[in-house]
Simulated assay, not measured.
Amino acid sequence: MPAQEVRWSSMARSVSVVGGGVIGLSIAWRAARNGWSVKLYDPSIGSGASWVAGGMLAPLSEGWPGEESVLELGSASLDRWPEFGKELEAGAGVELFTSESSLTVALDGADAEDLRTIAEWVGAQGRELQILNRAEVRALEPMLGRGVRLGLLAVDELAVDNRLLLQALQRCAVDAGVELIGEAVHSLDRLDTDQIVVTAGIASPALWPGLPVRPVKGEILRLRSRPGVTPAPGRTIRGSVHGRPAYLVPRADGIVVGATQYESGNDTQVTVAGVRDLIADAEALMPAIGEYELRETSAGLRPMTPDNLPLIGRVSDRVVVATGHGRNGILLTPVTADATVALLEGSALVEAKAADPERFEKVAR
């Protein structure tokens, strides 16, 4: 993978990773595999935003003109996912992938025009998306609502089971020699390793002041199939309903429905309004969704940045940050792991250049 050499270098080979979501676990695993002595600190591994996620890997169908850097980073990570996932599946003995394509649908004329815009722009960036008419959408996914006007098929976009991913990453990290320490870190000064990586999500600014990361609440539903119900779609289904983004992500035992988005501080309560909107939007996409068992409602706090790009970079000679992935933490896991390990070893991954935290003036080195 291409890397650009930078001046900083070190013989240091011990590192503390602070934060045990998918980002922290993947970095710890890859670093340990590269010969680093790794300690990972988290009082409750995998219980944050990584636990409450749909698992979509959809940088292409979410692309939009002017967001070239977001598309480039997401595409670089999507390209890494097949190999990354296969390594985890082999190491942990699980099946991670739940979908091998995604279909975004339009329910009105304005949304249909947006899909055409996305297809044209993404195509100009060298990636292919297919426009499907109403009949083609129905032939592909007959359980979708008759109000669908147009579809956008991304054959390269995948989806994974986020909870099995956390399980696999933890297993592979431990097998690689990572020491898991069930403690919270309130100050980086207490850590005794040569290097530190901050992957603490919304708690990252408390560890490195100035990081522009804020919590954004998201609610999801997990539905379980029942005997005789309409089968789940064979791929991830996305759409916009009354201006709200909605998605259905298949799982081995049902469907994940998401997701609301609120600027509500550290609130993780699931609201009646949130559940109502998610069910209504899911029914607009797939009318038979009401046949399923409502197994779980949950909410998490996504660590968002002002420009929707994560923060991946060195902020001091000892500290690297890898945080602020927002709603794309699962998607960006492989490229973030590669970029962070490269930084630890004195180089920089070209594909992650746009995520350098120095783009924000308040992030002091």
Rank of each mutant, 00 (worst) to 15 (best):
V6I: 15
S10V: 10
M11F: 10
R13G: 04
G20I: 03
I23P: 00
I23N: 00
R30E: 15
A31D: 13
A31F: 05
A31I: 03
N34L: 12
V38N: 03
S47F: 03
W51S: 07
G54L: 04
W64E: 12
E67K: 15
L78A: 08
L78S: 04
E83C: 08
G91N: 09
E100Y: 14
L103N: 05
V105N: 01
D108Y: 15
E113D: 12
D114V: 11
D114G: 05
E120F: 13
V122Y: 04
R138A: 10
P142R: 12
M143H: 10
V148H: 03
A154I: 06
V160G: 00
A168W: 00
A168K: 02
Q170N: 10
V174D: 04
A176F: 08
E179S: 12
L180Q: 07
G182T: 13
H186T: 14
S187D: 15
L191S: 02
P212L: 12
P212A: 13
V216Y: 06
K217W: 05
E219M: 08
L221E: 08
L221F: 10
L223V: 10
R224M: 09
R226M: 14
R235Y: 05
P250Q: 07
A273R: 15
D277V: 07
I279R: 06
A280T: 05
M286H: 10
L301Y: 03
D307W: 05
V315D: 03
R318S: 13
V319Y: 02
G324Y: 01
H325K: 12
R327L: 14
I330F: 02
D338W: 01
T340N: 06
T340I: 09
T340A: 11
A342Q: 12
E345N: 06
A354I: 07
R359K: 13
K362P: 05
